[in-house]
Design a binder for these strands. Structure first.
Lengths: 238, 238
DNA sequence: CGCTGTATTGACCTCCTTCAAATGCGGTGG
DNA sequence: CCACCGCATTTGAAGGAGGTCAATACAGCG
């Protein structure tokens, strides 16, 4: 049940079997339906959340009603580990598809990190990767036009999901509607629709039945100049 | 010399006088000229950098030559505290104006955090704020049009600089050229120029002699719907 | 006083938005 | 099995925000 979480963290640190066991027996696990808020802006978070299955996301709403999805939380991803320090959430986290979520009390995480250096390292690594992804998204929305921007997102998803054992090298689940996708990409849903048609015509991406299929992943990566370095997935050699 | 750093961290934790002293005697300080790379993509960072004076920034370059500025590092800001974990930089850090920079060996930071819980807390707070800013920038470029986007940046800068005692409530140094500003905003320099004219005509912002002046800060904040919560500058009450 | 980099302007183009309507589709109840 | 509902996708037409290219003005500096 925690396999995605453990698989992901393994990229950040050489975890032992004992570490796996510790990570696999954490917190209070529950199922949450699709499109439910887990925590909202202004709230004071008590727990750290780990997505065990399903897609969740972070978002912000502007006063004019526009929404922006800031991050996708895939299986293995967590909400902010130290978030208690900030006191109050400056954005919301919600589910996109039905999710399995583990809620760990802040103290559990702190203890775990203090007592087990490899886990501590893995968690800090995960935090840094989240930041790196956030930076890449900023570049993506600022400097790539719609079609490449969207292709880049799909490349990222394919890699991130592959890491946690979801989907395949050339296909993966994708529970977002085109409207959701528009809120990720900083576009309108109309333009998302047209861009998807373009990508399909080019043989780059097909979106069907809540699944993304990339007939030719190499071509897709070339098209958007995808460089996965920012995901920091290389097994470290020290 | 470390006053900006200490002032900033004071917002994240109740530092003692002793903590101030510890923070004020750190690392190797040097002056760096304007527009110098401090560390570049692909490099393996040894040190953590603290900006003591001047403006620095993070940026990424795409293969098509387009650049995007991902973050501004103002006095008191640091490069990534745990960056050694990632191994390799996925972006560059460079100076914009002449800067005073302190370079702390990774180990110094780790020890400091381990031995002094208040400092540890302050540093983690600073990291979280950086992330929050990054998220807000994503929203800003994705969902606000040029004039509001730019106004929002200036609001943020005024607040952040105020915190570290640089500038004034309605004015602050601004060493960016319009081309730099374009790379921050995800626009072209031509459009930045026209947008600045618009903002000036509206009496919102004047940019002169490497200084930003906001004749009416309230009006500016209203114009772009600025909500400083994401900077998490409220002194905590626990 | 000339040089170099930055700011400014104009004309034109295109990517993306807006608004509104039409089509498709999965699920539900009869 | 079909009719219907609500939601998601698709399409069209028109407009606007911002990009591109290229020339000009300006300012700081040696």
């Amino acid at each position: 049940m925690f396999s995605a979480f453990i698989r992901k963290l393994s990229y950040g640190s050489d975890l032992t079997e004992a570490d796996h066991d510790r990570l696999g027996a954490l917190g209070h696990v529950r199922e949450i339906g699709a499109r439910q808020d887990i925590i909202t802006q202004g709230e004071r978070p008590e727990d750290v959340y780990v997505v065990l299955s399903g897609f969740a996301y972070r978002y912000k709403v502007l006063r004019n009603g526009k929404r922006q999805i800031i991050a996708l939380l895939l299986p293995g991803d967590t909400s902010d580990l130290h978030v208690a320090i900030l006191g109050v959430m400056d954005h919301c986290i919600a589910t996109l598809s039905p999710c399995t979520i583990a809620a760990l009390p802040q103290g559990t995480v702190t203890n775990l990190a203090q007592q087990h250096p490899r886990i501590s390292r893995a968690l800090r690594w995960a935090t840094l990767v989240d930041e790196a992804i956030s930076r890449e998204w900023l570049v993506n929305t600022s400097r790539r036009e719609a079609s490449q921007r969207m292709a880049h997102l799909f490349c990222e998803l394919l890699v991130r999901l592959q890491v946690v054992g979801v989907g395949d090298a050339d296909r993966c689940p994708f529970p977002l509607t085109q409207t959701d996708l528009a809120e990720v990409m900083g576009l309108t849903s109309v333009h998302v629709n047209r861009t998807l048609q373009f990508l399909r015509d080019q043989g780059l991406i097909t979106l069907r039945k809540h699944q993304v299929i990339a007939p030719n992943v190499g071509k897709l990566k070339d098209f958007c100049d995808f460089n996965p370095d920012y995901l920091h997935l290389v097994k470290r050699v020290e």
